[in-house]
Write a protein that binds this DNA or RNA. Structure first.
Lengths: 336, 336
DNA sequence: CTGTTAGCGCTTTCAT
DNA sequence: ATGAAAGCGCTAACAG
């Protein structure tokens, strides 16, 4: 593979150390020499071999991004945002799909460390003990996304899951709904736990009794929403509203309503979460809790970059971005 | 960073060369020694440093995946498929979003080469001259996706764009439609050119005149479909059907119809492309041309792996996977 | 300011 | 079958 630092040194009549110095500006070099070197570099089209560099410097300009899957547009956009932001700073994204498998996650973490990635963005449930241990042992910069670390050990980027779901539920209540189902993900996710807490609190604040039977624990995708919906609509005395954990789930639920002969929003209100592009295009438009998805990704990248820059001086930060209820057509006042 | 081959050699009382040999099985080692080394490796939890290895071997177990963006679910699923297939074979995915910018593309290609990636999957329009030159100069394994190379220089994985669009158009014609709009992407993409050719041929075969005014060139996303739709529906003497370049475009078009007081499919039939999950869940279900998206990704990965394995012996192959018209609710026979 | 030299952690001749 | 030693391409003391 072509042309090395040696070739440059030779042609410029200097030592390789000098070439290295002008390229990295690590030590002063006389103007004359610097210019000659730069010229030769240009002329030969020399590019330092990043792998050799990594071996010494223990840094790779690679960032690992661990995600649970890409079936949800939220994640696609999030990843795209990270990739674009990192690209600006000359970092490249190593995409690792863990499929929610802890072993795969750990495997990837180990692999990333060996490749000397400069940092990792983790989009998984809560940091599990093994992960925590990993990051404490190896001191690789990390930011957790869609998670809020209470103990201040790790940097996090997220919205306020609790408040967002509280707001969503309250919105439904203010529309007159008293019986509101919750289509959530598995409760092993702290995200779900916190959202559920927001939901419960809203109910409590408005004197509505919490009913465990209205809680459906599935996943974040269309299929889950559909299945939960079909199950729910078979029950008698069904709710007048559903609070969903994602827009995809909402879409599944709406479809299930359709297949059950129910109209949205006339017979049942459905509230989404995320506000991915499809939420706006859907008919009816999906009333939803907007997350600033792209911004979340950008900030995840920036926090990581900051962490890399500041090293030991860096103090973990938890950043909560604002959410917003976007009113469209999938929710309405409950019929008298 | 921890434990190296030296530590193992020391503890096992052998030379580092021997350790290397048992780990790579590159030369015979006596059973006794081998076992002892393996024991120490186990005991110390030694992992060869892949970066040092890359520096010598010029291979990284990294695969670059270049995509134009992730706003379309087709790409997300495609990328996920590649990632999962590569993971099985111990390769990791470097995700590069080019945003359709040729310079970014070239930049990434250069970067990937420097990182000694073992291969790259390219999901972009046609191979442009500079890319072709790149791959010819550097001999890095590559497979083009969603593109069919006529000249047999590069491996490709795709469906038959021409035939697929021909079939879609014919389906619409057989439903009685004579005036069919085409919502496509920019014609700089060979993919679009070939699809357009299929569309035209179908019209011709059924004695329908081709009308340039019915062709809309935008992008693959919802917004594009919506804009094209709004424009189209303002015209008088509007078509009775639309043939779209993606399901997202179809969704945008349906929404536009809705906003224009048109019903789908009663007033206008809309045909999608891809069959992403949302197509099934949408109301009405979107009649569409199914691409085996996931399978496309898996095969892209496999072709690349084969290419890496066989090196010079490898003969570029063009693989076309079958498509299928999925009939749902967004298209119907033309009225009266 | 500049050159010489010793590695980073590994693979691979070349001897033995 | 095994070890010593020479690099892969680069950075960073260490001398001058």
């Amino acid at each position: 593979m072509d042309i090395t630092i040696k070739d440059v040194a030779l042609k410029a009549n200097v030592s390789i150390a000098t070439v290295s110095r002008v390229l990295n500006q690590s030590k002063p070099v006389s103007k004359a020499v610097r210019e000659r070197v730069l010229e030769v570099v240009e002329e030969l089209g020399f590019n330092p071999n990043p792998v050799a560099r990594t071996l010494i410097m223990k840094e790779s300009r690679l960032i690992g991004v661990l995600i649970p899957g890409i079936e949800n547009m939220f994640i696609s956009i999030f990843v795209q945002a990270i990739e674009e932001e990192l690209f600006k700073h000359n970092y490249t994204t190593l995409l690792c799909n863990t499929n929610r498998d802890l072993d795969v996650e750990l495997h990837y973490l180990k692999l990333l460390k060996e490749k000397y990635v400069d940092g990792v963005v983790l989009l998984t449930s809560a940091p599990k003990p093994k992960q925590i241990q990993f990051f404490e042992n190896h001191a690789v910069p990390v930011v957790f996304a869609s998670h809020t670390d209470q103990e201040g050990r790790f940097s996090c980027i997220n919205i306020d899951d609790y408040q967002a779901t509280y707001d969503a539920t309250r919105y439904l209540i203010q529309l007159g709904h008293r019986k509101i189902a919750f289509f959530g993900g598995p409760r092993v996710y702290v995200q779900i736990v916190r959202r559920l807490a927001g939901y419960k609190q809203a109910l409590a604040d408005y004197g509505i009794e919490y009913d465990e039977k209205l809680i459906y624990e599935q996943d974040y995708d269309i299929e889950s929403g559909y299945e939960s919906g079909m199950k729910l609509f078979r029950q008698e005395d069904r709710p007048t509203a559903i609070c969903c954990v994602s827009d995809m789930v909402a879409i599944g639920a709406i479809r299930a309503a359709d297949d059950s002969g129910l109209r949205v929003p006339e017979d049942i209100s459905v509230m989404g979460f995320d506000d991915i592009p499809i939420a706006k295009a859907y008919r009816p438009g999906i009333t939803t809790v907007r997350q600033p998805v792209y911004e979340l990704g950008v900030q995840a990248a920036q926090m990581l970059l900051k962490q890399i820059r500041e090293k030991e001086d860096y103090v973990p930060e938890v950043k909560l971005l604002p959410h917003e209820i976007i009113v469209r057509g999938s929710c309405m006042t409950v019929k008298g």
